[in-house]
Structures are given as structure tokens and as C-alpha cells.
Computed example of a mutant assay.
Amino acid sequence: MTVITVALGDRSYPIVIEAGVLDRAADHLAPLARGRTLAIVTDENVRGHAERLQAVLAAADVRSETIVLPPGEQTKSWTQLAALCDRLLDLGIERGDHVIALGGGVIGDLVGFACAILKRGCRFVQIPTSLLAQVDSSVGGKTAINTRAGKNLIGAFHQPSLVLIDPALLDTLPAREVRAGYAEVVKYGLIDDPAFFDWCEAHGAALIAGDPAARDQAIAHAVAAKARIVAADEHETNGTRALLNLGHTFGHALEAEAGFSQALLHGEAVAAGCALAFAFSAEQGIAPAADAARVAAHLRAIGLPDGLAAAGIGASGATLVDHMRHDKKMAAGTLPFLLARGIGRTYLDRTVDLDTVAAFLDRQAR
């Protein structure tokens, strides 16, 4: 067992990483239940994990009810948020109760936001079932839904009380979802840890193939890195946490163009976005061209998109930049970009001209 703490004063919480922890979840959840019924929110794809958890809780005399939602990014919507809140209210959820978010990033984001607003804030627990959620979205308290204007534009910072990460749950994850989650693993090396990027080049293929040692090491490293960054800048006010958005400004535009559909998974968009951020940095003379080529080559080797064509995006640069204009990070008409001076040397640039970005994207599409 590895336990990592997100240090936020009286709102600090533990992240427990242990193979098989789902089958021992009652040890962690029974004290939070306080003798009341726990609501478990999941989706159709991982309903079986929810049934396992219910059985584990029942054996410990902990009552639970399961709410099953449709899978996919489109579940992060006003419609599903309203339905979930109504269902939780029907169950009599109180402000001191804990709701269990059992699923990937979509479930974690939606449940976290519902708990942020339900009765002006109730508690929740993250039990992430995808690699992407285990290494990124389950940690840090960012919750949100999507709108027609863009991704994650309606949301709140709302920290969980506990995160339980069971790497063994990834044994049943489709290969495409594992690769998509890997984009959020390698991101940590690209941000500020070139030695970890070296590790990814050496062990990433084994991780994708399901090697337990590589998988466990990557999860623990990524979670520790994110916990450190969140503790330093919980609400993304001093620029530290913004580094975690590497690849996301480009990536969210690609997702919007793909209609937030299964045609392009979030992690796939982030991978393409990271490659584009490095390519743009290289074209502007900021990063060595060799580093941009190395990043793209690694993503291709893993089976992730390394640009627009590989992501299946044929839109013009102007169209993609229009998507970016709806980014929640826009301030006074300026959109900050995560660029890089090299692998492990990411920085926030608030001077990027969007017309320059559009022209760059047009060249990338050729």
C-alpha cells in the first residue's frame, strides 16, 4: 500500500494506492458512512465494479445504493447533472454524507460537481477505474461539466475526502482507454521531470501492455507529482497548477471539433495537444526541434496521436482557434498557453498571438 496526502490544511485527504483495495474498501468507507446509506454513482461500463463494491459494503453491514449513468464524455452535461442531483436528493443525501464516484474521469467530474452544489456542498470519495482518472482527474478537486461552448466551462473546485486507487481495476480496461490514460502519465515528465520522461520511453510500452510493476510505479509517481502541485496552488492562482494543463488548450479544441465524442478520447486529445505544444514551441524557436520530434516519436510508438491528422481532425486553424476562444482560462481577451523550452521545461506564456496559432495549425494540417 502507498498512501499519499494532498496537503490542504484542514481539507487534506489521503490517496490510497493498493492493488485489491476495492475488495477492502469497507475498511476505509465504513467510518465515512456514519451508519447511513452510501450512494455509489457509476456508469454502465463499470457497473460490475459497483456491484462488487456493494457486496463488500454489505458484508461489513454498510448500506449502499447504486446510481448507474450512461458512459461517455456526453454524460458530463446539464441534463445528467440535474438527473443525478434529483436522484441523490431522492435518496436523502445530507451535507455530511459521502457520495462514491466509481468510474473514470467523466463520473468523477460529474459526481464531484454535483456534490459541490448539492445542499451547498456535501462530501464525496473518488474510486477511479481508468488510468486517466487514477493518475490525474481523481486528484485535486477540479469538477465540471461540458457545454456547447466548450469543455469543463461549468464547474467548481471541490476536494474529495478520500481517493482509493486500485491498479488491478485496469486489468479489464480496454487497450484504447489505457493508451489514452497514458497521455496524462507522460505529461508529468514533459512538464518538469525529464528523468521521468526517460523512464516513460523505457517502460511506457510495458505499462500499456499491463505490466503491474510499471503500472504501479507510474501511478504512484504521477499521483505524488499532482498532489505536490495541487498543495502548492489549489485554485490555479499562482501559475504552478496551470502547468498541469500542458496539451489541454490544443487538446480541448480538438475535442470540441470532434463533438466530445468517442471519435477522440480526452487522453488522445491531450497527447495530440502535447505534441502540438512542443511543435509550436519548436517552430517559434523556443524549444529544440529534436525535443519536439522526440515527444512526437514516443507518442506514435505508444499508439497515441501526435498531431491533427493522427487525431482525425481536418478543421482549419481558424476553426480550432475559435474553439480556444471559449477556453475558461481566457482573461481580457488573452489565452495563456503552456509552451516548452525543452522536455521537462514547460512554462506559461501569456503573450501568444492566436492568429499565429491559427497559421501554425494550418501548416500542421498539410
Rank of each mutant, 00 (worst) to 15 (best):
T2M: 11
A7Y: 05
A26S: 12
H28V: 00
L29F: 08
L32P: 07
R36G: 00
T37G: 01
I40Q: 01
N45E: 11
N45D: 15
H49I: 13
V56Q: 09
L57N: 04
A59E: 15
V62P: 00
P71N: 08
S77W: 13
S77F: 11
T79C: 09
T79G: 12
L88G: 04
L91D: 14
E94Y: 08
H98Q: 00
G103W: 14
V106R: 06
I107A: 06
D109V: 06
V111P: 15
R120N: 14
G121M: 09
S130P: 05
V135G: 07
S137W: 08
G141K: 08
K142C: 03
T143N: 15
T143W: 04
I145Y: 03
V163L: 02
V163H: 04
D166Y: 02
D166G: 02
P167I: 02
A168R: 10
A175S: 15
R176M: 06
E177M: 08
E177T: 10
A180V: 00
G181E: 07
A183G: 07
A183Q: 14
E184Q: 09
E184A: 07
V185K: 03
D198K: 06
L207T: 09
A209H: 01
P212S: 06
A218S: 11
A232T: 07
E236M: 08
T249L: 01
E255K: 10
F260W: 12
L265W: 05
H266V: 08
A269G: 11
A271D: 13
A271V: 13
A272C: 11
F280S: 00
I286L: 15
A287K: 03
A287N: 08
P288W: 05
D291F: 00
A292F: 02
A293R: 13
A293I: 07
R294W: 06
R294Y: 09
V295K: 06
H298T: 10
R300C: 07
L304A: 05
A311G: 03
S316V: 01
A318Y: 02
A318F: 04
D327P: 01
D327W: 01
A331L: 12
T334I: 11
T334P: 00
F337V: 02
G342Y: 06
R345M: 11
D349Q: 00
R350A: 11
T351E: 15
L354I: 07
A358W: 08
L361H: 03
L361K: 00
D362A: 05
R366E: 12
